[in-house]
């Protein structure tokens, strides 16, 4: 019965899927504009019509409704409402909705709010709160040849401790959009939206190698806590104790508290195998060169 009702629904709504790993999403939307925008952000082999033989992890609906005054687009997962938006901001709100699904239902991994990049199979994890320059640094590193695993979600497999990629377009905000574009004129930044709750938001497309290796895990090797500081005359890269690193990682985790002793054990294993540093910098070029030497 339900199957029929969904089929009926699909006559009205256009369904498409984004086949990202480890989580895919089935999108129901009447907005052709959303499909076009998503096709700009994700490679064509990932944005497809739903395939009957596949299970999709999340379902998101983007629907125009009467209720909502100036923000008629409703983004929701089934009956669970996420947010309303006007047509100009549908793309970032959709991306946040996808993040919200992942952040709420990913306890099979220890999830840390961090950028993750890889070289020679080894992962560099950069946990940091917003405003620390993490996304900008992550974008620059990817454009310098590191493989991107994620710009904000470090997923640690609870069973084997490997770092699981979650490749998505890199969300850049405000000043960082201009900076990255000026440093790397060939960088492809799409769907720039002004006036969102987070200011101006745009998406840097991951390079082909990052997309291609989207299912390839890496081994955690370094944890660097970056802090951009305009007054920092000299770059500082200081080693920190593992116990400190452990505590900072735990504080930056989305679900360390939920996972309790499983989280403690998993994070313990990760911390055991990494070297941890604090990085304070004002000049991105210096930071890139320092990290390149370190790793």
């Amino acid at each position: 019965m339900l199957h029929q009702s969904l089929r009926y629904k699909s006559l009205i709504l256009t369904d498409f899927v984004i086949n990202t790993v480890p989580f895919s999403v089935l999108v129901s939307s009447r907005s052709q504009a959303l499909h076009t925008a998503v096709s700009q952000l994700y490679p064509p082999q990932l944005v497809l019509a739903p395939e009957p033989e596949k299970i999709y992890d999340f379902c998101l609906t983007v629907e125009r409704k009467w209720a909502g005054w100036g923000r008629p687009y409703h983004v929701s997962a089934g009956q669970q409402h996420f947010r309303m938006t006007d047509s100009a901001q549908v793309v970032p709100v959709f991306e946040w909705g996808f993040n919200w699904c992942i952040a709420s239902y990913q306890h099979q991994y220890l999830a840390i709010h961090a950028a993750v990049l890889e070289r020679h199979g080894k992962a560099l994890i950069m946990p940091a709160p917003p405003g620390s320059g993490k996304s900008t640094l992550c974008a620059a590193m990817m454009l310098e040849g590191w493989r991107l695993l994620s710009d904000e979600m470090c997923l640690v497999d609870l069973t084997d401790g490997s770092i699981v990629p979650c490749v998505r377009p890199v969300s850049l905000k405000n000043q960082s959009l201009k900076l990255v574009q000026s440093w790397y004129p060939s960088a492809q930044i799409r769907q720039i939206t002004t006036g969102t709750t987070k200011g101006t938001v745009g998406y840097l497309l991951p390079l082909a190698d990052s997309w291609q290796a989207r299912g390839q895990t890496a081994t955690a090797a370094w944890v660097v806590f970056p802090q951009y500081n305009v007054n920092q005359t000299q770059l500082q890269l200081s080693p920190i104790s593992k116990a400190d690193a452990f505590m900072h990682l735990a504080n930056n985790s989305f679900n360390y508290a939920v996972l309790a002793e499983h989280g403690f054990n998993s994070l313990g294993r990760l911390t055991q195998q990494i070297q941890a540093y604090r990085l304070e910098y004002a000049d991105i070029k210096q930071a890139l060169s320092e990290l390149s030497q370190l790793c």
């Binding site: 593992k242 116990a243 505590m247 055991q272």
Partner: peptide, 18 residues
Amino acid sequence: FDDSSSVFFSLSDHTTCI
């Protein structure tokens, strides 16, 4: 850890500390 720093986890109240 191998740098001899260490952390505790309380199974009773689920708090973590250095």
